[in-house]
């Protein structure tokens, strides 16, 4: 594993919190922000996390009618 891979593995667990707007530890916040600027793979992963979250929120917002019987 090279240094870039190690960086990627280090920041990816924070993507869900970052996408949800939750506060990250200060060092993690800076590292994630900088890493996303320079790593296209992680940018794609982060975009995936956000897209999934948005799709799920849309499901919740649809508030489909139900009939439990």
């Amino acid at each position: 594993m090279n240094a870039i891979d190690r960086l990627c593995r280090g920041v990816r667990p924070h993507f869900s919190d970052h996408a949800d707007g939750l506060p990250l530890p200060a060092v993690a916040a800076v590292t994630v922000g900088l890493h996303l600027l320079f790593c296209p793979m992680c940018r794609r992963t982060y975009a995936s996390v956000r897209a999934s979250r948005d799709a799920l929120r849309a499901l919740g917002a649809a508030d489909e009618p139900v009939n439990p019987g």
Binding site: R12, P13, H14, F15, S16, S48, V49, A55
Partner: peptide
């Protein structure tokens, strides 16, 4: 929970794509 959300959202996106 953070791990479950991260894995779940990634997996969901991969399935959708």
């Amino acid at each position: 929970l953070r791990t479950l959300l991260h894995r779940g959202r990634n997996r969901l996106r991969r399935i959708l794509e």
